[in-house]
Write a protein that binds this DNA or RNA. Structure first.
Lengths: 227, 227
DNA sequence: CCGTCGCGTCAGGGTTGCGTCAAAGACTGT
DNA sequence: ACAGTCTTTGACGCAACCCTGACGCGACGG
């Protein structure tokens, strides 16, 4: 889940933001002053920061610098000041975006999404795209399958089939669905294709292809991939 | 030097932007319609795009989608429309920032700096700028390839292709993706280009070009660079 | 007990995709 | 205008892949 840190000293604004963000399943922390904000940021490592420049204890630009000293988390600045100088100063200090009050909630959320989307690849890749079993490892991003330390060569159709199954690990995938996802929407009854290619996958990946542990047949229904 | 692509059909705005950007030592390309913009983006690979939504030939959002299909270059949208819906649509389509006209040049430049700064780590990863294999060394920053102590001469297309592959070391890169990143978004089926240029790269870099160890073909899918 | 249905296995043949070479076209700088 | 380089395009041989049909097996139900 995406974690947002909201920093503003006006309770109404904080309340409005928190309600809207939580409704969209963001996880939200809030701070009313700069010192708390910096402490919270360090403790909670938010994925994005929404910062009001007008804080009681310190200059908003100082908060930006304080954050930028150790993190590249996206910072979205809120401010009542429309002056161009203020914007330039905040942006050059390291802010990612600058929204003037009063702002539309839709726009703010869109800018927030843009900021988070940008930061995504840096923060969260590589971990969730590989699936491991005791016999082999599948890397969805690299399109690689490793078995006993060696890469296994798969043909496009084999890979496609494997991909659909792995993306539904533990779930049953109907034969019609498999056929349509791999061979195209006009296929749905050619179950012999499935039999041939499942056999090839098992031969390449299962320790004992005739007694599969991971590519399981559900007779009359479809197939299931288990770790 | 930072390369900027300016897309706007109003000559005055383009002129103002070009003058201001060049004064700050940016390299500037300009397009006055969407089709030209997409072609220029593919040919010149700008570091940031400034896009006016009101174009004569196509919807600005379509331009965003056309770019996002193959690149993550920062897109800064200009628009006369203040409507919240327009902003949300553009941002969710993949824009990075949205500035309404009339805009202050200082602010625009500051937002441009912010966008470029953010994108830097993707381009300038300190640790991955040189990739070594037992046969040759690729220096992404210096755009140089060294083999047996001597620099290898590569044509622009050869280099571009090598660059995309090396940036995805170990990962499979689909032929469509390769074509679009190297030749531009309107390419995607001309796989013969790939065959010709892969052959040239292998001839120049592989110890045994007919049995490549680093530039590996995945039939029907794409190519993979391995150390 | 036997017929049917669904699944696994195997091997052959048509088709596709890849590597290679060569030549024509486009571009650049002199 | 010319020469050199780079890009595009076409043709061909070869290997790999995908489809197809045939057969055997086990499960289930009549």
């Amino acid at each position: 889940m995406t974690r947002v840190l909201v920093i503003d000293d006006e309770p109404q604004i904080v309340r409005a933001l928190v309600i809207n963000l939580k409704a969209r399943t963001y996880e939200v922390d809030a701070a009313h002053d700069g010192a708390t904000a910096l402490r919270l940021a360090a403790a909670r490592h938010p994925d994005v920061v929404v910062l009001d420049l007008g804080l009681p204890d310190m200059d908003g630009v100082e908060v930006i610098r304080g954050l930028r000293g150790w993190t590249r988390v996206p910072i979205l600045v809120l401010s009542a000041r429309h002056s161009s100088d203020e914007k330039v100063e905040a942006l050059d200090a390291g802010a990612d975006d600058y929204v003037t009050k009063p702002f539309g909630m839709d726009e703010l959320l869109a800018r927030l999404r843009a900021a988070v989307r940008r930061a995504e690849p840096t923060g969260g890749d590589e971990d969730a795209v590989t699936v491991e079993t005791e016999a082999f490892t599948v890397d969805l991003a690299a399109k690689k399958v490793n078995r006993d330390g060696k890469d296994v060569r798969l043909t496009p159709t084999e890979w496609h089939l494997l991909e659909v199954l792995v993306r539904n690990t533990g779930r049953l995938v109907g034969q019609k669905q498999l056929l349509q996802e791999v061979w195209g929407p006009s296929y749905g009854t050619e179950t012999n294709y499935l039999r041939v290619y499942m056999a090839q996958l098992r031969r390449k990946l299962e320790a004992d292809p005739s007694h599969p542990k991971h590519f399981i047949t559900e007779p009359g229904m479809g197939y299931r991939f288990e770790k």
